[in-house]
């Protein structure tokens, strides 16, 4: 199909053929001008995007696969690098069984002697050292998703469907953590649930405070975007009891909201740093908190590899979110 602009272009071209003497260049230039402005605008924003987001990613990606030799002297951060990794080793040895611990000292010494310029050594290293924290982070994200789905659907339903005393207050309370600094949330949690310090449960609490508002918003937005109260009334007039309404009407119509909400929860929980950093101890360290450690203690290559691992997990999730979000609009027809 031709867009209206194509049509104009064709018309202008036809006019050009018909009246070569009548200064055809003018209409042609007129149709071209907005396009070139558009191009300039696109180019500028692409450049900006490149510098702001893509460039650091590329640098990280490059760094994560290069050996120390390529980076040259001085790229190895601080003289304490070997020491730190060794002391981390000891720390691990204390908390875990000696058999399971990895001889990181050997690892670290090995790093200097890798031949060639491309290596996956850093990824192995991150996996060995921070694998546990990644595992914890993924677990927290999955548990957060499950709890958010249950609370978000039930709570969102209640908020949209019923009017009750204190409803507005509840809605505000749910959004409140988003406007609080992570440190405030962390301190409040530690004060309140001090017993849980050192357990992953307290970090889960923190993550729920930050993720639930998003699931809730996703669900209530969808519920409000179609007259879902009437849909339910229609279903019950046709003989559907509460469970059948949940199964055939509510959940199918909320499917995309739940998927999009879950991916948001996943991305936020996995990347949450502020609260997790304050809540974490060596026994419940999350991956972002470990990333911080690696930035301060390890070489550039190690933190690059850690960042890249992070990206490999988060970017597909975000892409899925975008895909599903677009599909939702097409299926329901934008309500």
């Amino acid at each position: 199909m031709h867009s209206p602009r194509d049509g104009q272009g064709v018309a202008a071209a036809a006019a050009g053929v018909a009246h070569p003497a009548l200064g055809v260049a003018t209409p042609a230039a007129k149709t071209r001008r907005p396009i070139s402005l558009w191009l300039v605008f696109c180019a500028l924003s692409s450049l900006l995007l490149l510098f702001m987001i893509i460039a650091p990613l590329i640098v990280c990606l490059w760094g994560s696969f290069t050996t120390l030799k390529v980076m040259g002297a001085g790229s190895e951060r601080g003289a304490g690098w070997e020491q730190v990794t060794t002391s981390r080793d000891e720390e691990k040895a204390e908390s875990q069984s000696a058999a399971a611990s990895v001889d990181l000292g050997v690892f670290a010494k090995g790093a200097r002697n890798i031949a060639g310029s491309v290596t996956t050594f850093w990824y192995q290293y991150v996996w060995e050292v921070y694998g546990g924290t990644l595992h914890l982070s993924l677990m927290l994200a999955v548990i957060s998703i499950c709890i958010c789905i249950v609370l978000g659907v039930l709570g969102g339903y209640a908020l949209v469907r019923y009017t009750f005393f204190g409803k507005n207050l509840i809605e505000e309370m749910i959004l409140l953590p988003l406007s609080l600094p992570g440190i405030a949330v962390a301190v409040a949690l530690i004060e309140t649930y001090g017993v849980l310090r050192g357990s992953w449960v307290i970090i889960l609490f923190g993550h729920l405070l930050y993720t639930l508002p998003f699931m809730m918003q996703s669900v209530t937005n969808t519920l409000r975007s179609f007259d879902f109260v009437t849909l339910e009334q229609a279903a019950s007039s046709m003989g559907a009891g509460p469970w059948q309404r949940l199964r055939y009407i509510l959940l199918p119509n909320l499917k995309h909201a739940i998927i999009v909400g879950s991916l948001l929860v996943f991305a936020i929980s996995l990347g949450e740093f502020n609260a997790s950093f304050l809540l974490n101890t060596p026994f419940n360290q999350t991956f972002p908190a470990a990333l911080y450690d690696s930035y301060t203690n390890d070489s550039f290559q190690v933190s690059s590899a850690a960042t890249c691992i992070f990206m490999f997990i988060v970017i597909p999730a975000l892409m899925a979110m975008q895909l599903i979000g677009g599909k939702e609009m097409r299926d329901i027809g934008g309500a």
């Binding site: 179609f226 007259d227 009437t230 849909l231 009334q233 229609a234 279903a235 019950s236 007039s237 046709m238 003989g239 559907a240 009891g241 055939y248 009407i249 199918p252 119509n253 499917k255 299926d331 329901i332 027809g333 309500a335």
Partner: peptide, 19 residues
């Protein structure tokens, strides 16, 4: 409850299920 009354109902907005 409505589901026990065996009624058919046509709503002003039709309330057809979009899913």
């Amino acid at each position: 409850p409505p589901e026990k009354r065996n009624i058919g109902m046509v709503f002003q907005s039709y309330a057809l299920f979009p899913n």
